[in-house]
Amino acid sequence: MSRTHVSTILNGVETDFLCEPRQSLLEVLRDEIGLTGAKEGCNNGNCGACAVHLDGRVVNACCVLAVETQGRTVDTIESLAHGDQLHPLQDAFLQEAALQCGICTPGFIMSAKALLDQEPNPDEQRIRFWLSGNLCRCTGYDKIIRAVQRAAAEMQEAK
C-alpha cells in the first residue's frame, strides 16, 4: 500500500510524515514520529488515554486517521511543558498526587486543558462531566478532580 505524504503543525512545529490511510493519528504519533505520550488504552474512543488537541479541540487520536491531519494543528501532551517549566495542570497533578500508575494522566491533562481553555472556572460537576470520557482505574478520580480545581484556581490567579 502506497504511503501518503502529510504535513501538519505538530506541537507548534511544521512536521511531515508518510503514512498509510488506515493508520490512526495515534499510531503515527507513537510508531512513526516517536511521541509516545498519547497512550493506547482501548483503541475505540472509550478511555481517553490518547487524547490530543486537533485544531484546538480535544479528540481521541485513535479515532482520527493520520491522513486527516493534513494542514491541521495537532498538539500532544509533549507540548505542554516548556523546558522544566510545567503547565499548571501538570504541576497540580503532582501536588495533589492525582496519579498512581500514570498511564491515563496525559489524556486527563489534555482533556482538562481543553476544558480550562474554554471554561476557566468550572465547578466540580462540570469537571466530572468533561472528564467522563477519560477512564482512570487507580485513583477513584477524587485527586484528579482536586488537581483540576487547583490548576484552575492557580491559572485564574496568574491572570
Binding site: T36, E78, L80, L86, L89, L94, A97, L99, G102
Partner: peptide
C-alpha cells in the same frame, strides 16, 4: 509528609516509558 513522587514529572509530561512505548 506528602512530597512529590520521584517519577511524577516524567509521567505528567508524557515522557515516562511504558511497555508499549519502547522502540
Amino acid at each position: 509528609t506528602r512530597p512529590i513522587r520521584p517519577d511524577g514529572a516524567e509521567k505528567v509530561t508524557g515522557k515516562a516509558q511504558y511497555g508499549a512505548d519502547i522502540h
